[in-house]
Amino acid sequence: MERLLDVRRLETEQLGPLDLYLQAGELVQITGASGSGKSLLLRALADLDPSSGTVRLMGRDRERIAPTDWRRQVAYVPAETAWWAETVREHFPAGWQPDQAASWLERFSLPEEALDWEIERLSSGERQRLGLLRAFLNRPRILLLDEPTANLDLENTRRIERAVRSYLAETEAGALWVSHDTLQRGRLGGRVLEIRDRRMVA
């Protein structure tokens, strides 16, 4: 079976060379001491930082995909999502589908009015849920989740875990999830990879 994401000899200034892969629908957790380069790995995969090596998405080489398309398909979601305009809907990607948004709002336990909420007044839980929802609207094939629940209470954490699970089940996308939380590690399950001394340890 063809791998959804196939990474060979990925190397940046502080990381690698390392290999990893993701199957369709799979969630893989990334752990490692702080400063070991977990975020750097995700940033390199999203092509936000320069890296060498080959990265293939469904058999297609990253270099052959325009950067804007790549990042729509390989969505990076940081621990603190960035917001720049007044209301939530202004941050949605061009061409987003209202029915899709509505369906995800419901699954994130957010009301439909949330689209018109002012960013200033969002709680951190709402920000993270909406940040993830916004990324889902691009229909990415890969989710790169950089401690998306780091600053959240358990209720919001569980909501996000469930939403990601249902996104993967529905779209056959894959996810790399960076987490510090050992309890979360148990809940999420799946393969766990550790970064140590620039390398990947299974």
Binding site: A46, L48, P67, T68, D69, R71, R72, A75, Y76, V77, P78, E80, T81, A82, W83, W84, H91, P93, R134, A135, N138
Partner: peptide
């Protein structure tokens, strides 16, 4: 100053 916003927008597929 706005690097986080810029990268956030790039990550969503903005040019």
């Amino acid at each position: 100053r706005e690097r986080r916003v810029i990268e956030g927008r790039l990550a969503l597929g903005d040019s």
